[in-house]
Design a binder for these strands. Structure first.
Lengths: 238, 238
DNA sequence: GTCTATAGTCGGATAGAC
DNA sequence: GTCTATCCGACTATAGAC
């Protein structure tokens, strides 16, 4: 790599380090990523890390906050569509289901489609495995929002109160149908071959998730009525 | 910790190191776990690691292989129940669904119930995030087996051929409903409080997953018929 | 703001006494 | 088999030249 003292590198150093951080922190975690590897990957001097971010941890937090903003903007439209439908008291089943289809499509696309989504979900998984001080940035800033929207949507479709424990757990299970393709991506890719799923795969996953959610909604029967009154056990919506 | 030169420590050193490895590798990954931390956690001398396992990587592989054996034995009965039902050509829908319920209950219990299951799934997640040379031990030895059984079961219930891509992807999505409670456990526990889910939570999750799988089976409609003929894109059953 | 050089610490593995 | 002592490399962060 060439020297970076030219014009475009002057204010670009932070960005280059954050890009490198997204990749390497996702792959190896914070603890196993060395500042040397980060500097090398970014094509930047090692000392730029403590200088710009106060250290490795500071870079990690900066990467987290930036990436959350990006991803939230990507899923935002899908979430808003659902919230709009739920906010309309006269919205019928068809309207709610249409919003659900949009949300599933958005989530599959955002989670599985874009290349940097891999690093993002890797970091999310790292935080679930061993939460750091930055865990709440993800939890409150991203996961709880998405889970809250699914909870509202399913609450309307299933006729369950928003605080119902069963509802919140069901929202998790429904999301799991999509999330597993992210979580198990390495296993899937190992056999499919290649760096990412094809568009045909993504379309199939999208349709099949939509169809299964429709079936779940259509075939709903209460599973644990005795827990229906419990509330506050899971995080609140957005 | 007391000296361990007494009788019960002589052949126990390997076991103590593997226990410590399961915990620490799961929490921090191989790269971020130091041999010193392992030796301290195990109450064992540092030199025991290269001596008994040839090094840190050797200990990791030993932990993987041992834990897979344990976990496979735990889910084995549930898997066998399903395989038996599927092997019987005259097995009716009710019989297949009964086997499905047993399998869901077994998986939820094994994944979420036992305390060491947390470390096991943490290591599985680490391998999905950044596969090491030991990835196939998990993939072929555990995941592919479970996924293969679900594929067979759903194939019978949905009337899809075992090689169907849609079927294999659906098996993943169905498993995702259970897996997400493992993957997202940190977020769930953070709000529930405590070290593990209560029995009431586990029972609710079990019932709700069973009910949703039943709904999916009852409400099935082909989602991507044009991909029905594709085969070999995902790993084979057991 | 970016670099080199270096301080101070911790990493994994080994040699050799017991 | 288990221990102590130690090598040597890699780590993060900082000081100071430019």
């Amino acid at each position: 790599m060439k020297k970076q003292t030219t014009k475009n590198a002057e204010k670009e150093t932070r960005q280059r380090l954050m890009d490198a951080g997204l990749r390497l922190f996702g792959l190896h975690g914070v603890g196993a990523t060395s500042t040397r590897a980060l500097a090398l990957e970014a094509g930047v001097n090692l000392s730029a890390i403590p200088y710009h971010f106060g250290g490795k941890e500071g870079l990690y937090r900066a990467v987290l906050e930036h990436t959350i903003g990006v991803k939230l903007a990507e899923v935002g439209p899908g979430l808003d569509r659902v919230l709009a439908a739920c906010a309309n008291p006269s919205a019928g089943r068809g309207e709610l289901l249409a919003a659900m289809r949009t949300l599933v499509r958005t989530m599959v696309t955002v989670m599985l489609g874009s290349p940097e989504s891999r690093s993002f979900s890797q970091i999310m998984m790292q935080e679930q495995i061993a939460p750091t001080g930055a865990f709440n940035i993800f939890h409150d800033g991203f996961f709880a929002k998405v889970h809250g929207v699914w909870t509202q949507l399913l609450g309307r479709l299933l006729g369950l109160p928003p605080e119902s424990l069963e509802l919140r757990l069901r929202a998790l299970a429904v999301m799991g149908q999509m999330v597993i393709f992210r979580v198990g991506m390495s296993g899937i890719l190992r056999v499919v071959g290649g760096e990412k799923l094809s568009d045909a795969h993504l379309e199939c996953i999208t349709r099949l998730c939509i169809q299964q959610v429709e079936a779940i909604v259509a075939g709903y029967e209460p599973a644990c009525p005795e827990l229906g009154a419990m509330s506050g056990l899971l995080e609140g919506a957005q």
